Simulated scan of single mutants.
Amino acid sequence: MTDMRGSGGNGEEERVREQSQRLKEKIERARGQFAAETAGPQRIGGEMTGMGRAMRLGTEFIAAILVGAGAGYLLDRWLNTAPWLMLVMLLIGFAAGVLNVVRAAESMNRAAPPPPGSDLGPGSDDED
């Protein structure tokens, strides 16, 4: 076995240190490039894609209708009033679904930043 502490070992140790330092620098550059590439598509502050918004709104609307219809069906079975309570609760579920969609869309629009270059109307510093 070769002893690295000998006269020839010093040059070898230095060469290994230089290689490891270059490798470390390459790794850091690669990490920086990876972080820069992945930073773009991240969502900030709950911003959603268009498909995500549509899925949320559609799910909330359908869920409210199904809950209303299901509650009406169960009440009809319990009170023997078929189909009247189911129809009434179906309409109430529809109204609740519309209200949920309006509220959710309003909160999503409030959270999303305006698109670049959009004119939001006159500002407070504009003249009348």
Rank of each mutant, 00 (worst) to 15 (best):
M48R: 14
E14H: 05
A69H: 02
G70D: 07
M4H: 10
M86E: 13
N109L: 01
A64Q: 02
I92Q: 07
S107I: 10
M108R: 11
K24H: 14
L23C: 08
F61K: 02
G121Q: 03
M51I: 11
M89W: 00
L87F: 08
T81F: 06
Q19D: 08
E12V: 03
M1C: 12
G121E: 06
S124T: 02
P114D: 03
T81A: 13
L66W: 00
E47W: 10
G40C: 12
G9R: 07
E18G: 05
L57F: 10
E106P: 05
L99T: 12
D126I: 01
A112S: 15
Q42C: 07
T49C: 03
E106T: 12
P116S: 15
I92F: 11
A105L: 05
D128Q: 12
R22H: 05
R110Y: 03
W84V: 14
M48N: 09
L57H: 07
G68K: 03
P41W: 05
F34N: 14
A36P: 12
R110W: 02
W84G: 13
R103E: 09
G6W: 11
M55H: 11
G8Q: 07
G6N: 14
R103K: 12
G11M: 04
V16Q: 09
R29N: 08
G68R: 05
M51L: 15
A82E: 02
G40Q: 13
E14A: 09
L99C: 10
D125Q: 03
G11R: 00
A96E: 02
I62E: 08
T2K: 11
Q19V: 02
W84P: 10
R29V: 10
A104L: 04
R15G: 01
R53H: 09
N100R: 13
R56Y: 11
A95Y: 07
G8E: 08
L90W: 08
V88K: 06
E106C: 10
A104F: 02
E60L: 15
E37F: 11
T81H: 06
A64C: 03
T59D: 01
V67N: 06
G93W: 00
G70I: 06
L85S: 08
P113M: 15
Y73Q: 10
E13Y: 09
L79A: 15
G45E: 10
N80P: 06
V101F: 12
V102M: 01
P113C: 12
A96K: 01
W84F: 14
G52Y: 06
A95W: 07
A64I: 02
G70F: 08
G93Q: 01
G58V: 04
L120G: 04
E28P: 06
A71S: 09
D119I: 03
E37L: 15
V101D: 11
S107T: 09
E25K: 12
A105K: 04
V98C: 15
A112N: 13
G58A: 01
E25A: 14
K26F: 02
G9M: 08
N80Q: 06
E47P: 07
P114N: 02
L90S: 15
N10P: 00
S124K: 03
A95Q: 04
V98E: 12
M1F: 11
A111T: 14
G121W: 05
P83K: 13
N80I: 04
G117V: 01
D128K: 11
E47I: 09
Q21N: 01
L79Y: 14
E47A: 12
